[in-house]
Amino acid sequence: MALRIDAELAGCCTWTLTVKIIPDELRRNDTVILKENMWFYIDHFTKKYIGEEIVLDFDSSTGYTLSNTDNIFICIT
């Protein structure tokens, strides 16, 4: 078990990208990332939509933020 960074694309005329961080098991073809003693899984679909360089940051007043250089995808307080 590790934390999965997971993206879901939904919509018809307007597309919405939802990104979640969830506990999950390793799937075939996942990229496995070890960062500061924490394991993360990310699939190819998610990497395609959120990019190669992502930042997971924590601030005690606002919680966790997942972002890349262009967007903030998720804030968990």
Score class of each variant (00 low, 15 high):
1 M>R: 08
2 A>T: 05
2 A>D: 02
2 A>H: 03
2 A>K: 03
2 A>P: 06
3 L>S: 08
3 L>T: 14
3 L>N: 12
4 R>E: 10
4 R>A: 13
4 R>D: 04
4 R>Q: 06
5 I>R: 02
5 I>M: 06
5 I>K: 03
6 D>F: 15
7 A>R: 03
7 A>Y: 07
7 A>K: 05
7 A>Q: 06
8 E>N: 15
9 L>P: 11
9 L>K: 11
10 A>F: 09
11 G>P: 09
13 C>V: 06
14 T>D: 10
14 T>F: 13
14 T>S: 10
14 T>R: 05
15 W>R: 08
16 T>G: 05
16 T>P: 04
16 T>I: 11
17 L>P: 01
17 L>R: 04
18 T>C: 02
18 T>D: 10
19 V>Y: 00
19 V>M: 01
20 K>W: 07
20 K>L: 07
21 I>W: 00
21 I>L: 13
22 I>R: 09
23 P>E: 14
24 D>V: 04
25 E>K: 13
25 E>L: 13
26 L>A: 11
26 L>Y: 15
26 L>F: 15
26 L>G: 00
26 L>C: 10
27 R>G: 03
27 R>M: 14
27 R>E: 14
27 R>N: 14
28 R>C: 06
28 R>W: 11
30 D>I: 09
30 D>V: 10
30 D>L: 07
30 D>T: 11
31 T>W: 08
32 V>F: 05
32 V>N: 04
32 V>A: 03
33 I>R: 01
33 I>M: 06
33 I>D: 00
33 I>A: 00
34 L>Q: 10
35 K>H: 14
36 E>F: 10
37 N>Y: 13
38 M>A: 11
38 M>K: 14
39 W>K: 14
39 W>L: 15
40 F>M: 08
41 Y>C: 02
41 Y>L: 11
43 D>H: 10
43 D>R: 04
43 D>K: 07
43 D>A: 06
45 F>L: 11
46 T>N: 00
46 T>P: 01
46 T>I: 02
46 T>S: 02
47 K>F: 02
48 K>V: 07
48 K>I: 08
49 Y>H: 15
49 Y>T: 03
50 I>K: 01
51 G>I: 12
51 G>E: 05
51 G>S: 08
52 E>Q: 13
52 E>H: 12
52 E>M: 06
53 E>G: 02
54 I>P: 05
54 I>K: 00
54 I>Y: 08
55 V>M: 07
55 V>L: 08
57 D>W: 04
57 D>M: 05
58 F>E: 05
58 F>K: 04
59 D>S: 09
59 D>G: 02
59 D>E: 14
59 D>M: 02
60 S>D: 11
60 S>E: 12
60 S>P: 15
60 S>F: 10
60 S>H: 11
61 S>P: 04
61 S>G: 02
62 T>M: 01
62 T>V: 08
63 G>N: 05
63 G>P: 15
64 Y>D: 04
65 T>E: 08
65 T>P: 01
67 S>Y: 09
68 N>M: 05
68 N>C: 05
70 D>N: 13
72 I>A: 03
72 I>P: 00
73 F>E: 01
73 F>D: 02
73 F>M: 03
73 F>T: 03
73 F>H: 01
74 I>W: 05
74 I>L: 15
74 I>D: 02
75 C>K: 14
75 C>M: 11
76 I>C: 10
77 T>V: 04
77 T>D: 12
77 T>E: 10
77 T>H: 09
